[in-house]
């Protein structure tokens, strides 16, 4: 099992390296001189040359790549080209904001989807199961930003139960933090919960047909007991796969939802940096997002091993 984990970890490192090359190369093939783009089209040649020299843009590409990657790994990211604000502390702060948002949304989605999806499977021949299934189908079709706008319209504007946006760090004021986290997290969670519930439903339906569930019933377990004690863990493998994919989509979905709720997360940071033409910052944020997705996939693989003992036997 350890061997298998080590191998997966190696794969993770290699993928990260390949991803960094791709992200770097992608930024290089963008047309135009990044220094001129950053300073604006009307900037003087001297100013552009100065910026190029100051940030080493005139060095060979390989040196630039090594310098950037070294900075990313050591979290020594330097300063933004134009505003001269240090990048690293901003990145850490905003990563924390997006982290709160994404993880809260994911937990919410799980808490909703597990019981609802299971219910949909157990009652799939009955009206309530079919109805829930239809509702989840609609939920899948609602994009997160639309859910966000609807939530703001009713819960923030009409009934004024929640603030319509902004952000307060949890250490500063926990109550305000939760109030401001609620709507964006819910708007992200609704879609994910709908999708996840459908996957839970099919995974549980699959498990309900398994022989070992009948064995459990023959042992004297009531249907729900048999399902929760013997079924859910076995249904978890496909669910965890989807969960990993969903976390990745949530990160991307957060970019838009952060805009709607005016939240200073990674998504807003990315859009702001694009607007300010800070290519090196954009490059770094994209790398962080890609790394997050790869790490999530690695964690999913690890969780498989914990769930299913059959996978623990390393193949030769």
């Amino acid at each position: 099992m350890l061997l298998r984990l080590a191998r997966r970890f190696l794969v993770l490192l290699v993928s990260l390296a390949v991803a960094s090359v791709l992200v770097f190369a992608f930024m290089q093939v963008l047309p135009g001189d990044p220094a001129r783009v950053a300073l604006g089209m009307n900037s003087s040649d001297e100013a552009v040359a100065q910026l190029r020299e100051q940030f080493g843009l005139d060095r060979p590409l390989l040196v630039q790549y090594a310098d950037w990657l070294g900075g990313v790994v050591t979290l020594d990211l330097g300063v933004e080209w134009v505003s001269k604000a240090p990048i690293a502390p901003q990145l850490v702060d905003r990563l924390a904001v997006t982290g709160w948002l994404v993880i809260t949304a994911m937990v919410l989605a799980l808490v909703i989807a597990l019981p609802v999806g299971t219910w949909m499977a157990v009652r799939h021949r009955h009206a309530d199961g079919v109805l829930l299934s239809a509702i989840s189908q609609v939920g899948v079709a609602v994009p997160a930003f639309l859910a966000g706008i609807i939530l703001i319209t009713y819960f923030a504007k009409r009934w004024q139960w929640f603030p319509s946006g902004g952000w307060v760090p949890p250490a500063e004021d926990p109550v305000q933090f939760l109030l401001r986290l609620a709507l964006p997290a819910i708007s992200l969670a609704l879609v994910q919960a709908s999708m996840l519930a459908r996957y839970v439903r099919s995974a549980v339906l699959e498990v309900l047909r398994e022989d070992y569930l009948r064995t459990a019933r023959a042992k004297g377990l009531r249907p729900m007991q048999a399902l929760t004690r013997h079924g859910l863990r076995n249904a978890a493998v496909p669910i965890v796969t989807v969960l990993g994919l969903q976390l990745a989509t949530l990160l991307i979905g957060a970019v838009v939802v952060e805009r709607v709720f005016v939240i200073p997360g990674l998504g807003s940071f990315l859009l702001d940096s694009v607007a300010a033409r800070e290519l090196i910052t954009v490059q770094t944020i994209v790398m962080v997002l890609v790394a997050a997705v790869l790490i999530i996939n690695f964690l999913v693989d690890t969780v498989y091993l914990l769930i299913d003992p059959r996978l623990r036997v390393g193949h030769r």
């Binding site: 070992y212 023959a218 042992k219 004297g220 076995n234």
Partner: peptide
């Protein structure tokens, strides 16, 4: 019935390969 099953009456199934929970 669930009080009787596994206690007063029990059953052995045809397919041993799938009759046991693979994760327990």
């Amino acid at each position: 019935m669930s009080q009787l099953r596994g206690d007063r009456m029990a059953m052995i199934f045809q397919e041993p390969m799938t009759a046991l929970n693979p994760t327990m």
